[in-house]
Design a protein around this nucleic acid. Sequence first.
DNA 1: GACCGCTGTCGAAGCGCTTCGAAAAAGGGT
DNA 2: ACCCTTTTTCGAAGCGCTTCGACAGCGGTC
Lengths: 337, 337
Amino acid sequence: MVTLADVARHAGVSASTVSYVLSGKRSISAGTRERVERSIRALGYHPNAGARALASNRSNIIALMIPLRTDMYVPVMMEIAVAVATTARTHGYDVLLLTGEEGPDAVRRVTGSGLADAMILMDVELEDERLPLLRATGQPAVLIGLPTDTAGVTCVDLDWSATGALCVEHLAKLGHRDVAVIGEAPAVYERHTGFAERTLDGLRSRARELGLRVVHRPWEGGYDAMAATLSRIFDERPSTTGFVVQNESAVEPLLAVLRQQGRAVPEDVSVVAVCPEQVAVQASVRLTSVAVPAQEMGRTAVGLLVGKLDGRETDDVVLIAPELTVRASSGTAPTIP
Amino acid sequence: MVTLADVARHAGVSASTVSYVLSGKRSISAGTRERVERSIRALGYHPNAGARALASNRSNIIALMIPLRTDMYVPVMMEIAVAVATTARTHGYDVLLLTGEEGPDAVRRVTGSGLADAMILMDVELEDERLPLLRATGQPAVLIGLPTDTAGVTCVDLDWSATGALCVEHLAKLGHRDVAVIGEAPAVYERHTGFAERTLDGLRSRARELGLRVVHRPWEGGYDAMAATLSRIFDERPSTTGFVVQNESAVEPLLAVLRQQGRAVPEDVSVVAVCPEQVAVQASVRLTSVAVPAQEMGRTAVGLLVGKLDGRETDDVVLIAPELTVRASSGTAPTIP
DNA sequence: GACCGCTGTCGAAGCGCTTCGAAAAAGGGT
DNA sequence: ACCCTTTTTCGAAGCGCTTCGACAGCGGTC
């Protein structure tokens, strides 16, 4: 193993000089720097992470806590995780992967051991039990998701409320008067994951302003469940012509059942989805959708965290504005015959 | 910050005693152990990861390299990653998340810096460029996937060749004589990712033995592409009655197009999928499938790695035997009218 | 020419832990 | 009571790095 001392010897300088070349924290003459850099390359030197962490009290690692469960948004989670990992690298950080399994203990462990300099938490619940700990330890953290109380923590999220409003506005503009929302699995609501409730709230209040009627049905499971859900919706509100889907795994079942029932999209009913771009484009009908900006969320979270670690002042809550892209699944509401 | 020395003082013992209580590498009398443990809890002590890594030359971190691209098997990747993270924790390891982006450099960096004790590589290509490095450094590593040359590395994978064979056997047993394989995107083959080619080889050679005819068509993209692919297949081989799908994102398009063409599953055509259990169960037709045992792969990989790190002798190549579950998408071949 | 303020470099201390050899304590036989 | 073995505990060295204060040169100033 090549150590800093080896490099110093090879370059004919002291260890501290090599260290300063590496960190740039003191000025080093061009000649010396050059010589040291050449030695580093010649010997294939890599600074020892542990020693560095010990001496500098900084690990250059960001912990990312992903949910263990896979009942929702797996591709979104994956995309965020990959974006976090790549962005972190460009800032010189590595990413430690924690699963929600350990829960608050993981926060304690990572903070206490100095394993990571900061944390990114996903799958944040409205009253997340990890928050008090985070506030108490003063560990720099960014949440992806928006808890009820954002005091002392930084958050990044899609503006779900605006997303819901945007969907219903789009349908209203096309003349739809009765809208059905196919929501997440009941478990998601029970857990008080913020985004599901917020979307619904935003959608409902905008619908009220615009004079639309809304029914909301959670969904989970398979095609049969979807068929049942749809019959119920059309029984209760026969004049339903607009659909909002917030659950990417519900997209294909919904389209399939509609097709099977002989309802044409977008002639008879319009569908607006909240889902990753890719899902919208690859669906059997190209979907009018509000994209879930997974990458942007991951990138932003890392950006904020690095800002904090560098002592910069950062925003407390970053809400990403939703953007609706019109594709082939929405159109003018059918005129009642 | 609470250090080991603080604990020692609090418990009235020396630092080394505390260390031995923690590591269990020397016997400590029950009384002393008790006292030390009480102090640890009282002070809320967590060993400093950096110091530990420096002194012991072990970071207790496993690096997991996941592919950057998301053109395939995202849920499988995610499931493996989560399984790796959870299993690693039960062995006292944390997981560092690397993306393929850095490529071989990541291997060099992580090995050189002592950031991780070992690596798990996913998305292994037949002639993976990270392999020579791994062999050279002697870094303990486990590949998820099977390269051409497995010398000096440990691999875990589903036995794809047997998987292909199993699928075609099942169809043969049901009386199908002409089988079509809907394969991965062409890019996957061009990259020489082992599993795609192996499945196909296994399937083809078994088919030859059983006297079945096979056509193979890569697929990628949307429903239109699937419709085109199917017409071509039925034009060229009108007597095709068996389908094998190896691409989970192709499942719904295939079923949808078949339905649209008025071909009943399983009465007119049978479909066998290679995909995660969940996809098979939630599809619009419950699919006869060979499950991709993502969790098992992740768990096994960690198990092997921990074994290596503990100096145990481990297998070099662990091939997981495929299991075919019969569901509603396959049945007796229709008799030619 | 003595003095000043630079810039560039060095030496040493110390980060918190593990680990080795050795000392101290505790039994066990005679 | 003694010696010998075994168990338990301690002290000190050292892992590879960062960082602080100090020092050596250097050109410029009065």
